[in-house]
Design a binder for these strands. Structure first.
Lengths: 155, 155
DNA sequence: TTATCTGCAAAATATTTGCAAAGCA
DNA sequence: TGCTTTGCAAATATTTTGCAGATAA
């Protein structure tokens, strides 16, 4: 019999010092932009490049969009962040965790909640690889609906 | 005990006459562009607006890109097609089926195989709605990896 | 005949590239 | 000092909008 799955809501992500240590280990420089972008991404919700730019400007930090796109490409390549795409087709970024995560996207307020579902799709992935000879490397699973707050508002 | 899941590979989609009847029922006109776009979408693989434009031009049919985008928005609104987004952030379109479908995206040859997985995520969706008060309306589940052909090439 | 559909030009939005200047170690 | 990072301008890609003219029923 299958165990019921475990849902973990991702709340706070990571100790900033841990990321800094990892960057130093990889021989990367520690710049203001890099530190500030990582601070913003240390959050349970993924952000797009332009959302990051906007959030930086809230803190009086003006960074060119090109720099942000390049910094995100850099962090992606260093395996420090993930890229996720939802139905709107915009690329969003979040800190990489040990466990693969999924998302609950509210169709009303557009808030995104990051969750970890344990023991999910294991059987299906095995079946797909066995029956269709498709070697699965990764998957994306996102749920769309109404968050607690919005579903109460709608009725 | 949970039954093993059933995988259905979507091969041919639908009788074109069925779509035409549905369009007539909805009071829509039958135009050359509409017919041709639906012919292209009658395929196990979703296509982007510009891929459709390209495929039309292969058949000597020249249609403005604006028309294609508008036609897709029209068919979407009439519930005849689905919009799907993969990791590249490009919107792709496919004929709507009774059953929700998922996709196997080959990271090497970029072929997309449409599949129907029965009895998948039912338990997880129930748990998410009960434990997190998130009312799920829809989900997207896509697998990325190597198709049979490409995984053989890689070794 | 008339509501629907289409093409063209231009705009909006997200992302990328080249090059020269600035800055961290 | 030298390599990495940054800003600016311009290019590219996808998608959207306004308007005038064409077309299916």
């Amino acid at each position: 019999m299958q165990l019921s799955c475990i849902i973990i809501i991702v709340m706070k992500i990571i100790n900033p010092l841990e990321v800094e240590r990892k960057l130093k280990l990889l021989g990367c420089r520690q710049t203001k932009t890099r530190t500030e972008i990582l601070k913003i991404l240390n959050c349970p919700q993924p952000f797009s490049a332009l959302e990051i730019k906007q959030r930086l400007s809230y803190c009086q930090i003006v960074v060119n969009k090109t720099t942000i796109y390049r910094e995100l490409a850099f962090l992606l390549q260093k395996n420090i962040i993930n890229e996720v795409v939802f139905k709107d087709g915009i690329k969003r970024y979040e800190l990489k965790l040990e466990k693969h995560s999924h998302h609950l996207v509210c169709l009303s307020c557009h808030q995104i909640k990051r969750v970890v579902l344990e023991n999910v799709l294991i059987k299906q992935e095995k079946q797909i690889s066995q029956q269709l000879n498709f070697k699965i490397i990764d998957h994306s699973l996102e749920f769309y609906g109404l968050c607690d707050c919005c579903s109460k508002k709608h009725f």
